[in-house]
Computed example of a mutant assay.
Amino acid sequence: MAIVKAISQQIVGGPEVLQVVEVDTPRPAAGEVLVRVAATSVNAADWKARRGIVDRLGPPPFTLGLDVSGVVAQIGSEVNGFRPGDEVFGMAMGANAENVAVPVTALAPKPDHLDHVHAAALPTAALTAWQALAGIGTGDRVLIHAAAGGVGHLAVQIAKSRGAYVIGTARTVNHGYLRGLGADEVVDYTATDFSTALDPVDMVLDLVGGDYGTRSARVLRPGGRLVDAQGNDATGDPRYRRFYVHPSGSALREISALVAVGRLRVEVDRVMSLADIAEAHRLSESGRVRGKIVLTAWESTADLSTQA
Rank of each mutant, 00 (worst) to 15 (best):
V12S: 10
G13H: 05
G14L: 11
E16N: 10
E16W: 03
V17G: 04
E22M: 12
D24P: 07
R27D: 09
P28C: 00
V33G: 01
V35N: 00
V37N: 09
N43E: 13
D46R: 04
R56T: 13
P60D: 04
P60T: 02
L66H: 12
S69L: 08
V71H: 02
V72W: 08
S77K: 14
S77G: 14
R83W: 01
E87S: 12
G90N: 02
G90M: 03
G94Q: 04
N99C: 14
A106N: 15
L107Q: 04
K110M: 10
K110C: 14
P111G: 09
D112Q: 13
L114T: 12
L114M: 12
A120L: 11
L122N: 08
A126Y: 10
W130N: 05
I136P: 07
G137C: 14
V142G: 03
L143R: 00
A148L: 12
G150Q: 08
H153N: 15
I158P: 11
R162E: 01
V166T: 01
T169K: 05
R171K: 10
H175K: 07
G176A: 15
R179C: 03
L181F: 01
A183C: 04
V186F: 07
D188K: 08
D199K: 15
P200I: 10
V201Y: 07
D202C: 05
V208P: 04
G209S: 10
G210K: 14
L220C: 05
P222K: 00
Q230G: 04
N232A: 03
T235M: 09
P238K: 09
R239D: 08
G249N: 08
A257D: 15
G262E: 02
V266I: 10
M272P: 07
I277P: 00
E279F: 01
A280F: 06
E285V: 13
G291A: 07
I293P: 05
V294G: 08
L295N: 00
E299D: 10
T301I: 14
L304S: 06
Q307E: 15
A308Q: 14
